[in-house]
Computed example of a mutant assay.
Amino acid sequence: MADEGDVLTNLSNGAPNGADNQPVAGLISQYVKDLSVENPKAPESFQWQEQPELDVQFNIAAKQVNEEVHEIELKISVNAKCASGTAYIVEVSYCGLVGMRNMPDEQKHAFTYAEAPRLLFPFARRVISDAVRDAGFQPLMLDPIDFNGIYLQQLQSRRQQEEGGAPAGQA
């Protein structure tokens, strides 16, 4: 791109006739697909004095909607237990429709399982916080999750399994 007296020129980025061939990815929409809140010991649980032990699980799933759109699903489950019993259980399936075009497969994979969940997580976290509050407890603010770090660990683990997974006796 060249500057000529505050006028931008050569905006085609090398694409003839405005061809759309640059890699692009972005969030199209996001939504709660499923939400479950259980408060099984209410109203007794509101009298418990002990801090509940939290078990937080999360999973990422992806489904192709069409050639350029994928649904990314962030599933988060929170189970709060005390010696007296289960205080609450919150499960959310928070989804986003992600558009990806002109991207190599490895970049699509990284965006699907690292970047898209990173974008969705703050909103899923708010849904969980509100659900816990609406169940009658103090809002739960989950710690941030390093989805990129987890993604890289998963890739490294998979590579190590593939390298060390050769049957015995073969070189």
Score class of each variant (00 low, 15 high):
L142S: 13
A83Q: 09
E68I: 14
V92G: 04
R158K: 14
Q64Y: 05
Q64T: 15
V98F: 14
Q156W: 03
L155Y: 01
L140S: 08
W48G: 02
C82D: 01
F46M: 11
A171L: 09
Y31N: 08
P167E: 07
D130R: 04
L8V: 15
S77Q: 08
Q154I: 10
I72R: 02
Q170R: 07
G99A: 14
V65Y: 01
R118I: 03
G85Y: 06
R126V: 03
T9E: 05
L11G: 09
V92Q: 04
G26P: 02
Y151K: 12
V127F: 04
E71G: 11
F147H: 02
I60Y: 05
G99C: 11
V98C: 09
V127G: 05
L35Q: 08
F58T: 02
I89K: 09
M1V: 12
N17Q: 13
K81Q: 12
P43Y: 00
Q64V: 13
V7P: 00
R133E: 09
A114C: 06
L119K: 10
L97R: 07
G165R: 05
P139S: 08
Q22L: 15
D143V: 07
I150N: 03
V24S: 12
Y94R: 06
T9L: 12
R126Q: 13
D20E: 11
G18H: 06
V98T: 05
N21L: 07
P167W: 05
N21V: 12
R101E: 09
R133W: 03
P23C: 06
A110M: 14
A80L: 10
M100L: 11
V132Q: 01
R133L: 03
D3V: 14
N102M: 10
F137T: 09
A2T: 14
P16S: 12
I145W: 01
G85R: 02
S45Y: 00
A2M: 07
K81S: 14
L119S: 09
D134C: 02
S129Y: 03
D105N: 10
G169Q: 07
R125D: 09
I89N: 04
E163D: 06
E163T: 05
A124R: 02
